[in-house]
Design a protein around this nucleic acid. Structure first.
Lengths: 181, 181
DNA sequence: TTTTGTGAAGCGCTTCACAGCT
DNA sequence: AGCTGTGAAGCGCTTCACAAAA
């Protein structure tokens, strides 16, 4: 794939594509474009995505169980190895290929399985409490789907996912398009 | 709120905060900090977020119905006015304060209500087809939750939300932290 | 000839430093 | 005294232009 083709796929200029790839240091031969597989591997290595990480879902409501059923994690290097919910009943009722546990086993399971990342899908009202339990369990990173800003100590990474922010970004694009008539 | 306080809340430097706010042109008096309400209004005006937009959810599976139950859209200027699903049965069973419709009414309802934004929550396999129906219905923007790249004509904005990207961003942060010991 | 890789220039965001306002 | 607003400098990403490689 040539840098011009990558430009049309990604929207980034071919200049930027070429310079960025050159920083990866993978040896791509001039004349032909880039090999997609080799390129992907080089990017993964550069970003430190070249090893698998274990994940869990905390909160098995509609969002949590939607994620539980998503089958695309494994092929991207993320192993979904546990789901947790406060309701023992829900844990027993939900059928899943991923083992489910009641909340009181959270710390034990995270420690035993070596889970590094939690997908936090609990209601906003209990998100901070759940976060603190995760931190006590030595979680390393949290993808936060709760519409609340989490308070975490330095050394813990949080990645917020908030629909309203996406809507705002979209609305801002629409407005700027509208203002050019 | 002073620029120093905003720095500690947002992580952006007070220098950047002050310069960015100065571009907004809202007249904030030196000496005291910024009024939060006035600041918010100035940002909304600058980004074109100072009017309401109507939204709909397409696909009422677990993710779609999770969004349907989220009550935070209205206070941010987004009116969720319709939900659509291919299954007439599901449309009838789900209880919601938002009116639900079977898919074949999509174009009519979007036109009649003046819906501008769709939250696309259908399975990946039918995402492109659904997108084309939305475009025929003159939708302006799509928040895409399906794990697929949508092909859209120029003039339609798409905002992708993909969990794996969030996991990758988190894993990259963890790796770079690990590499400093 | 096509396409990469890279010095050099361009450009914009960030930071510094401080005048000016309250 | 404290904080904002802003020229000026700094810094890094982007783009240009072209030599080197296949």
């Amino acid at each position: 794939m040539t840098s011009a083709e990558l430009e049309s796929v990604t929207g980034c200029s071919s200049h930027t594509i070429r310079r960025d790839i050159s920083y990866l240091g993978g040896d791509f031969s001039s004349g032909a474009g880039y090999g997609v597989a080799a390129l992907r591997k080089a990017i993964e290595t550069a970003l430190g995505l070249d090893r698998r990480r274990k994940c869990c879902i905390v909160g098995l409501g509609r969002l949590g169980s939607a994620l539980l059923n998503f089958s695309g994690f494994a092929e991207e290097g993320f192993d979904l190895v546990a789901g947790f919910d406060a309701s023992v009943n829900r844990v027993e009722i939900l059928s899943s290929t991923v083992p489910l546990y009641p909340n009181y086993k959270l710390s034990e399971v995270i420690g035993r399985l070596g889970i590094e990342i939690a997908l936090l899908c609990v209601p906003a009202a209990v998100a901070q409490t759940a976060t603190e339990k995760l931190i006590n369990a030595r979680i390393k990173g949290i993808v936060n789907f709760a519409p609340t800003a989490l308070v975490v100590p330095a050394g813990i990474s949080v990645q917020d996912v908030y629909v309203v922010d996406e809507l705002r970004a979209l609305a801002a694009k629409l407005s700027s398009a509208e203002s050019l008539q």
